[in-house]
């Protein structure tokens, strides 16, 4: 990934910074610059999402792209954030731990790297929400 593009993604990836339309209350992640409902009447502001949510559905990846094939098997899920938006993310748990409806919390992990000498990408993955982590 080009370094400037990675750099632009830092707020969204590290802290789940999305956007909110003050006109209609719509919440967006990843961030949108225009509200698809209000169009030119929309007033978009920055909005940080907590990162807690629920697994809507998931799959276990056994055959991954070159960047991820050493991590297989891993769980990739669609997570519905408590505030509403859906996003795709990795769940750091054993495949047999993953359940639809499972509550999750955000964790800070390495998302990838441009080889051994390139830039490292960090960002948010999800982990099962346990009593100790609340």
């Amino acid at each position: 990934m080009a370094v400037p593009r990675l750099w632009r993604h830092i707020p969204t990836r590290y802290n789940l910074i999305g956007t909110e339309c003050q006109t209609c209350g719509g919440l967006y992640f990843p961030p949108r610059t225009t509200c698809p409902t209000c169009r030119r009447d929309g007033r978009i502001i920055e909005r940080k999402f907590k990162g807690t949510g629920e697994v809507v559905t998931y799959t276990t990846i056994y055959s991954a792209s070159a960047a991820f094939h050493r991590q297989t098997p891993y769980v990739l899920a669609i997570v519905k954030l408590d505030e509403g938006p859906l996003l795709t993310g990795q769940i750091v748990c054993d495949p047999d731990e993953a359940k639809i409806g499972m509550k999750v919390r955000p964790v800070f992990r390495k998302l990838g790297e441009d080889g051994p000498s390139g830039i490292i990408y960090y960002g948010t993955k999800f982990a099962p929400l346990t009593e100790a982590s609340q």
Partner: peptide
Amino acid sequence: PDLDEDTATIAVEAAR
């Protein structure tokens, strides 16, 4: 550490 954990991710979790 997990496959996707390093000193930076550990430092961030402790800091948070």
